Amino acid sequence: MSSETGHTGQNEKTVTNRTMDMVVALVFMGVSALVMSDSWRVGASWAADGPQAGYFPFYVGLIMFVASTVTLVQNIVTRHPDLTNFVDRTQLVSVMQVLIPTTLYVGLIFLLGIYLASAVFIAFFMWWLGKYSPAKIIPVAVGVPLALFVMFEIWFLVPLPKGPLETALGY
C-alpha cells in the first residue's frame, strides 16, 4: 500500500510462517538437549529410593525434543508449506522498538543493578514512546524502583542484583 494511506510496510514480506516454525523448533530442540544433558549429569534414572533429581526434567526435555523434531520434519517434508508472511515490516518495527531496549535493560542490570537500570528503562520508555514530560517521568522512574526496593529488600527480604549505587549506599 502507499504511504498516503498510512500503511507503509504492511504486506511487505519479512519471513514466512514455515521458516519461523522451523527456527522455533530448532531452538526448542537445543533447549531440550541442554535440559536432557544437564538432567543426565545430575542423575536421570530411577534409584533405590525413587527418582533421581534429573529424572523428571530429563523426560520433559525428551518430550519437548520429540515434539520439536516432529514440527521440524513436518515443515521440511510438507507438500503445502505455509509460506504466508509471519509478520509485516510495521509489526516487526513495533516489536523491535520494545525488544532492543529491553535487551539493553537486561544488560544494564549487570552493570548498574536492577533498581538503577529499571529507573533508566522506565524513564527512557516514558520519554521515547510515551512522549511524557520530565515532570511525569522523574517521579515514576524514581518511585517505581524505590517501591520495588522497599517491597523486595525490606519487606520480603529478597535480595535482587545490586549495582554500584546500592553498594555505595551500603545495601
Rank of each mutant, 00 (worst) to 15 (best):
M1C: 01
M1W: 06
E4T: 13
E12T: 07
T14W: 01
T19Y: 07
V23H: 06
V27K: 03
V31W: 01
V35W: 08
V35F: 06
S37K: 02
S39Q: 10
R41P: 01
S45P: 04
A47D: 02
A47C: 05
G50M: 01
A53S: 10
A53V: 12
Y55F: 12
P57S: 10
V60K: 00
V60S: 11
V60F: 14
L62Y: 11
F65C: 13
T69S: 15
V70D: 04
V70E: 12
L72R: 04
V73K: 09
T78P: 04
T78I: 09
H80V: 13
T84H: 08
V87L: 09
V87S: 00
T90Y: 04
V93W: 05
S94V: 00
S94Q: 03
V98M: 07
I100S: 07
I100P: 01
T102R: 04
T103W: 06
V106N: 00
L112K: 01
V120H: 10
V120D: 02
A123C: 03
F124K: 03
M126N: 02
W128N: 12
L129F: 12
G130K: 02
K136W: 12
P139H: 07
P139R: 02
P139E: 09
P139Q: 05
V140E: 09
A141T: 05
P145M: 14
F149D: 06
M151P: 04
F152N: 11
V158F: 13
P161V: 03
A168T: 12
